[in-house]
């Protein structure tokens, strides 16, 4: 019996090590490409949020006051040395595990735009947050994240009040809204502390080209 157990254990170990070894090979093989993809995605999103920006300087000392939200990276966005705003890569809990968003805050203390980095919510429901053709407001062609563009952090950020929810995905809508709010507030605190402010003429308004949302907010349904 005892001999049997050792034999079984060794067999299992052999299979596991073989599987591990082959996984390690695939991982090493794909790692570079995966890192490149996520870096490309991040850079593309930063460019989308701040089209006029010429430099994104990483900043280290932006910490989250709430342990539920993590700021993986933050960038001071500049255009020829003049500040444009802050971009925060923030992770927080959502319906299907952690979601990572890139939140851009401009010098007027409003949201320049939001992009999804990773989201694992229900396909067809919560995942609609990252679907560019899913509109929470069809008449205005406004996507869920698009509605945050130009929104001031002084707003209450409450789903079904000043934020239109995704149909059948209230938890996702709420979670993502909270991540944006946490990232935004931290970014504003940072800008206040470092005295990064809009120049008097206020020409630094960062537009969100793809999801321009100049019309007034629709409010809850």
């Amino acid at each position: 019996m005892k001999k049997d157990m050792t034999k079984l254990g060794v067999t299992l170990m052999l299979f596991a090590s073989l599987a591990c070894a082959s996984l390690a090979v695939v991982y090493a093989f794909t790692k570079e490409s995966i890192d490149k993809q996520s870096e490309m995605q991040l850079q593309a999103s930063l460019k989308e949020l701040f089209p006029q920006a010429t430099a994104f300087d990483p900043i280290q000392d932006l910490v989250s006051p709430n342990p539920n939200f993590r700021f993986e990276a933050a960038y001071e966005v500049k255009s020829d040395m003049a500040p444009l705003g802050l971009a925060v890569k923030a992770t927080g809990p959502s319906y299907g595990g952690n979601a990572t968003l890139l939140v851009g805050i401009d010098l007027h203390r409003s949201v320049a735009g939001v992009r999804v980095m990773t989201l694992n919510d229900t396909p067809g429901l919560g995942m609609n947050a990252s679907n560019p053709t899913y509109y929470v407001d069809k008449t205005k062609k406004m996507t869920f994240l698009g509605q945050f563009a130009g929104k001031f952090l002084t707003d209450p950020f409450e789903v079904k009040k000043d934020v239109v929810a995704i149909t059948a995905a209230t938890i996702s809508s709420r979670s993502l809204t909270n991540i944006i709010k946490a990232a935004g507030n931290a970014a504003i605190a940072y800008m206040d502390q470092k005295a990064i402010a809009a120049p008097a003429e206020g020409d630094a308004s960062a537009g969100d080209g793809a999801e321009a949302n100049t019309q007034p907010q629709a409010g809850g349904k």
Partner: peptide
């Protein structure tokens, strides 16, 4: 999963956890 993440990032994103 790894191969899809590396070479078909869009598809991998839309399939998520499945």
């Amino acid at each position: 999963d790894l191969v899809m993440k590396a070479y078909f990032p869009d598809l991998s994103k839309s399939m998520g956890v499945f």
